[in-house]
């Protein structure tokens, strides 16, 4: 089996030394502290003498939100410098003049960048599994959540890679990636509130389709689907989710949108990284 050489090399470099291990250890320490704190506060309740499955839902929700925020914040930083960094280090031309296809370079860099976040998510599984102690959460629900994380990370990752290919400087690529993520998460909510306010006279029982692109809306819809109203931690999203009646849940539509966007951006990135892409125009002229 041929593993993408770029991915293999990046994994070797990224996982070498103490940094990767220290990062995982620190992350798990924080996550475990959060989990222990929730369990501790639940069981130190003097008015409760029984195990409350609702407590595990609360613990699960807090951990899920914690990881989700982590993805939104870390993935742009990991991916926006993937290609521009190579350009700045003057190593990109050396790879481009080999037989490696542009899409292989893009996918290698993308998955290498995402490997760190995937590793963090996978390493957090044991912490997440503490919720099984109290019941109320099934393995399928955790897998669903982790699948949603993976797709969200992939989408933000391809946005980062696209800007990394398009812009010469890592700083500019990082700023733009965070900008797009901010628009998808907060901007789309802002526009939705404005739209619903103006068109439906501040009635929030409608679902504005722009929210389909919003990972927070998708995440909220996923947790709502898993636990009903108990997971309506974002004001307004419960009624919005309820209003989005269709064949698919909002999180499912969000996943489809994310996959579509990821494929498009990966293809565009592969096109843009190819230094002789304008050759198509040249060939067209030649044929004429």
């Amino acid at each position: 089996m041929n593993i993408n050489p770029v991915l293999l090399k990046e994994l070797k470099v990224r996982m070498r030394g103490w940094r990767a291990a220290a990062m995982i250890a620190l992350y798990l320490l924080i996550l475990a502290a959060v989990a222990v704190f929730i369990i501790y506060t639940t069981y130190m309740n003097p008015y409760s003498s029984t195990v409350d499955p609702q407590a595990s839902v609360g613990s699960y929700t807090v951990l899920a939100i914690f990881q989700f925020i982590l993805i939104l914040f870390i993935v742009p930083a990991l991916t926006a410098g993937a290609i521009s960094g190579e350009r700045e280090k003057q190593t990109l031309d050396l790879v481009l003049c080999t037989r490696l296809r542009p899409i292989s370079i893009i996918l290698g860099k993308l998955f290498a960048s995402l490997s760190q976040i995937i590793l963090l998510i996978a390493a957090s599984l044991p912490v997440f599994s503490t919720v099984f102690l109290f019941g109320g959460i099934s393995m399928m629900e955790i897998l669903q959540l982790f699948g949603f994380y993976a797709v969200t990370a992939l989408t933000i990752g391809t946005i980062g890679i696209y800007f990394s290919v398009s812009l010469k400087r890592t700083t500019a690529a990082t700023v733009l990636t965070y900008g797009v993520v901010a628009f998808m998460t907060l901007g789309s909510i802002f526009i939705t509130v404005l739209y619903l306010g103006m068109v439906y006279n501040m009635s929030y029982d409608k679902f504005f389709p722009l929210l389909y692109i919003n990972p927070i809306a998708g995440f909220s819809s996923l947790l709502s689907g898993q636990f009903g109203s108990s997971a309506n931690f974002l004001p307004g999203f419960g009624s919005a989710n309820a209003a989005a009646k269709g064949l698919l849940e909002p999180w499912q539509v969000n996943i489809l949108f994310d996959i579509g966007l990821s494929v498009l951006l990966a293809a565009l990135s592969a096109y843009k990284i190819n230094p002789v892409r304008k050759g198509i125009a040249v060939l067209w002229k030649r044929k004429k």
Partner: peptide
Amino acid sequence: KEKLGYMPDFFGVYDDL
């Protein structure tokens, strides 16, 4: 690309390899 090898005037190397 199979037939030629290129060495640029300025290039970087992967530090951690």
